[in-house]
Every structure is written in structure tokens, then in C-alpha cells.
């Protein structure tokens, strides 16, 4: 059976989502997409220059790849909503990743404002993917608001520190009805594999790919790691196995004695 998952009205078979930021040259974007097979790519609307003709970053993204515009730069829900509307009016589709950040030091998301924007944009017919601080108490609220998936951070954007929020993300995966897409902080393929083994629906990787010396090969490496992690998850692999035989049974030995 094909391992497909759905967000909004789109189906995905590749569980690596990518980004357009930080590349040495925009020409790497289509090459990376081809090498990785990534089917969704996020782009900051603030970097899209519709007046730039062929140099418009969107012209580097093949038509078969789903565009996920993001609201990078928004400090509150009102700004995020306006950015989303500009993106849709400009023909970027109905998908939107909400990023509301008012902390320029660590770029931590503001869940409260993100939730407000989610509520508004879902009502306006957007397919909303909120970028959030992992927080169990918010999961139900995002579900109720109609989010299409939830994107908790593994660690700070661009930090390459891996999944430092692992315990909470495990809880989100367990508790949420929505796909959990681990976003931010994934710096190495092994960390992407780790997220997938945990049961994440997908991961989004930008910095680690775009700032690699060879972003095309890096994209492929992440894609393979995501596939491996996903397969391991589906194989329902056993956890740590104890050494098995124990010489005596101080706790359960009495069971035999009763016979």
C-alpha cells in the first residue's frame, strides 16, 4: 500500500518539506527539489518580488511542487492575516504557514497570536499550517480552530541543534489528530530520521539544506533519512530490548513454587 498523507486537499508521498531561504543562488532550488523529491516548499512572502520577472523566486519552483507561503516577519495575528491574503491574491494558492514571531533574539513563535491568525484564516478558506512552540495545551485549540497540520519547532530556527523538544513532540504526536510536522532546528539527516521514527508525519528542513556547501546532495540526504525514519516507524520496530534471561526470579519465582 502506498504511504500517502494528506494536508488540505493535497496528497503527499514525500515527507520532506523544504524551504527557499538562505541559498547561495536561487538556481539551486529546482535542483534541490528534484534531488530530494520534496513535494512542498515554503517561501517567505517578504522575499517574493512579483515585479522581478524571471528573477522572482517563485519562477524557480516547478509547478508540481506545492507552494507553502509563510508569514515570516509578522509580529502579530493581524499582520499574518494580511500577509496570507496578499499571498493568495498574488496566486500563491490557499496553503499558508503562519509564523508569528516577536522575539528577534531566538525567533520563538507566539502561540497565542498564531492561534488567532489560524482561526481567522481557516474561516477564510485557507489551508493553515501553524508554526508553534510545542505545547500540549494548545493542540486541542489548533484542532478546534481547523488547522490542517501542526508544525512544532525542534529547536530554534537555524540553530541546527536537533530535536531538543523531543519529549513534548512525542506527546503531541500521541495526542494530536492532526499531522505533526517537525519544523526548525533539524540540522542533520540523522535528526530528521529521528523525528520520523518518533512518528512525525513529515519534517521541514531549510537551513541545513540551503546553507550546505552542496545543497542538492544535502537535500537528497535528508530525503533518504526521512524515508528511512518513516519506514522504521511503519515497521513498528521494537524499542530497547533487555538482555533476556535472568538467573533467578526473586519477584516471580514463587509462581513455580505453587505448582
Amino acid at each position: 500500500m502506498k504511504d500517502v498523507f494528506k494536508i488540505g486537499n493535497k496528497e503527499f508521498t514525500n515527507r520532506l518539506f523544504t524551504g527557499t531561504g538562505k541559498f547561495a543562488s536561487k538556481k539551486f532550488i529546482p535542483l534541490m527539489l528534484e534531488a530530494s523529491g520534496s513535494e512542498m516548499i515554503t517561501v517567505a512572502l517578504r522575499r517574493v518580488d512579483f515585479s522581478a520577472g524571471d528573477e522572482n523566486i517563485l519562477s524557480y519552483i516547478p509547478k508540481n511542487v506545492v507552494l507553502l507561503p509563510n508569514t515570516s516577519g509578522a509580529r502579530n495575528s493581524a499582520e499574518a492575516v494580511r500577509i496570507a491574503n496578499i499571498a493568495r491574491e498574488a496566486g500563491c494558492g490557499d496553503f499558508i504557514k503562519i509564523e508569528v514571531i516577536n522575539d528577534s533574539r531566538y525567533l520563538m513563535p507566539d502561540n497565542m497570536e498564531t492561534l488567532k491568525a489560524t482561526e481567522i484564516l481557516v474561516k477564510d478558506g485557507f489551508t493553515v499550517l501553524p508554526y508553534v512552540m510545542p505545547d500540549v495545551s494548545f493542540i486541542k485549540r489548533f484542532e478546534d480552530a481547523g488547522a490542517a497540520a501542526i508544525m512544532p519547532l525542534g529547536s530554534a530556527i537555524g540553530s541546527n541543534r536537533g530535536i531538543r523538544t523531543k519529549e513534548i513532540i512525542s506527546m503531541l504526536i500521541e495526542l494530536s489528530r492532526l499531522p505533526i510536522i517537525v519544523d526548525a532546528g533539524i540540522g542533520r539527516p540523522s535528526q530528521a530520521a529521528e523525528a520520523m521514527e518518533m512518528g512525525a508525519a513529515a519534517v521541514l528542513v531549510n537551513t541545513a539544506i540551503s546553507s550546505a556547501e552542496d545543497p542538492v546532495t544535502a537535500g537528497k540526504a535528508f530525503s533518504l533519512a526521512v524515508q528511512a525514519g518513516r519506514m522504521a516507524y511503519l515497521a513498528d520496530m521494537r524499542g530497547e530490548i533487555t538482555s533476556g534471561a535472568v538467573a533467578s526470579s526473586p519477584l516471580t519465582g514463587f509462581l513455580g513454587e505453587r505448582k
Binding site: 536561487k26 517578504r46 522575499r47 522581478a52 516577519g73 509578522a74 493581524a78 499582520e79 494580511r82 496578499i86
Partner: peptide, 17 residues
């Protein structure tokens, strides 16, 4: 910039900000 492997970014802003 391109020779150095740096991408020139002309626009990094959006009107609602």
C-alpha cells in the same frame, strides 16, 4: 555577490509590516 556564492536579496519586506 554571485561570484562569491552569495544571493543578492533585493526585497525582504512586505507592506503590512
Amino acid at each position: 555577490l554571485e561570484k562569491k556564492g552569495l544571493q543578492p536579496v533585493f526585497k525582504d519586506w512586505e507592506q503590512p509590516f
